[in-house]
């Protein structure tokens, strides 16, 4: 029925002229294959339909992610709270994890952001061009290393290497709560985790920032230099204002990665209840808690872990949306585009 309708729809605008030219052309080129408009129309329909359904499938998948998480997390919210997390209830279980996750992510960003900006500037504006390309590859390599290997590196190399530093922090800056002693003797602390996370986040922020710095209009840069600006003044006046929304989105991207990172935390951190000190063992993040407890979980504790995953999902979603909002707000005023 639809096929017939389609045929007539195709036949009427084209008319007989087109078909005759088509046959003529095919005869002219040897007549190996006769072009049939009907066959092509079906192909067009099938192909566009397939492409469309692939696109819709993505929407379905994301909705399914949310739906199944909610479905499986639901029992943890409605069950009597005395049955969850050794009688503490769900919120008493999740809030310390959220705080731990946010602390680790924020520290890693505080460490990573200035360094990433420096590296991105180095590659885009300081290093000689040939060298810059190789350095870009090196940074991409750093981004490609799997997180479990960063975790293994953190537990076997970085944590022991930081122990003397933590001892010094505890003895000389111990009056600040976050450096309260006694320092961990193994170095498996939240600060170590944050540093590992920073190392993992740096290549992400760097590669986004580098792309954006390279897009700075050459005329802006040359105008600044021609007016007598030093290289740093040129960067501050031309490059950074142009790149600001991009930098924010890069940092948010890094934040999302740091919030959701699992293996590095699960391997490095010697977890425990929430404490203020960053250099004692203790604290935990949502993702690592799920990874550590999931293999043995069943029944309601499984629902509880999935609920924790839902909280993490909502959290990262919020970060992404805020990032998008900030970028869209800044874009109007940047003046560069």
């Amino acid at each position: 029925m639809t096929k017939a309708a389609d045929e007539t729809a195709h036949a009427s605008p084209k008319g007989p002229d087109v078909t005759s030219t088509e046959t003529k052309t095919s005869e002219h080129s040897g007549g190996a294959r006769k072009l049939s408009s009907r066959e092509g129309a079906a192909g067009d329909k099938v192909f566009s339909g397939t492409a469309l359904s692939a696109g819709i499938l993505i929407l379905v998948v994301l909705v399914a992610v949310a739906a199944f998480l909610v479905l499986q997390a639901f029992p943890a919210f409605v069950a009597p709270q005395s049955q969850i997390a050794d009688g503490k209830g769900f919120w008493a279980y999740i809030v310390p994890l959220i705080v731990g996750t946010v602390i680790a992510a924020v520290i890693s960003l505080v460490v990573a952001t200035p360094i990433s900006l420096g590296v991105a500037l180095f590659i885009s504006h300081y290093a000689p061009r040939r060298l810059a390309q190789i350095l870009g590859y090196i940074i991409d390599l750093l981004a490609a290393i799997p997180s479990v290997i960063f975790g293994a590196w953190g537990i076997s190399f970085l944590a022991p290497a930081l122990v003397p530093g933590y001892a010094w922090l505890a003895s000389s800056l111990g009056w600040i709560p976050i450096f309260g002693g006694p320092a961990s003797a193994t170095g498996k602390t939240l600060l170590t985790v944050s540093i590992v996370l920073a190392v993992m986040v740096i290549p992400i922020i760097t590669s986004v920032c580098r792309e954006i710095f390279l897009q700075t209009p050459k005329l802006h840069e040359e105008a600044a230099l021609a007016l007598g600006a030093t290289r740093w003044e040129m960067i501050r006046m031309a490059v950074l204002p142009f790149a600001r929304p991009g930098i924010i989105s890069a940092v948010m991207l890094g934040l999302g990665r740091a919030l959701g990172e699992t293996m590095a935390v699960a391997l490095v951190l010697s977890s425990g209840p929430l404490i203020a000190s960053l250099i004692q063992s203790g604290n935990q993040t949502i993702a690592a808690d799920i990874a550590l407890n999931f293999p043995e979980a069943s029944g309601l504790s499984l629902n509880q872990l999935i609920a924790a995953g839902l909280v993490l999902f909502v959290f990262t979603l919020a970060v992404n949306i805020v990032a998008r909002w900030i970028i869209s707000r800044h874009k109007e005023f940047s003046g560069a585009n």
């Binding site: 993505i58 929407l59 998948v61 994301l62 399914a64 992610v65 199944f68 998480l69 479905l71 499986q72 991207l253 999302g256 919030l259 959701g260 990172e261 699992t262 993702a287 799920i290 990874a291 999931f294 872990l305 999935i306 995953g309 993490l312 999902f313 990262t316 979603l317 970060v319 992404n320 998008r324």
Partner: peptide, 19 residues
Amino acid sequence: FVDVMTGIPSIVAGLFAAA
């Protein structure tokens, strides 16, 4: 949605498949 999917933490993807 693709942008949102890019930001899904890997462990949440695992939880989704498991669920």
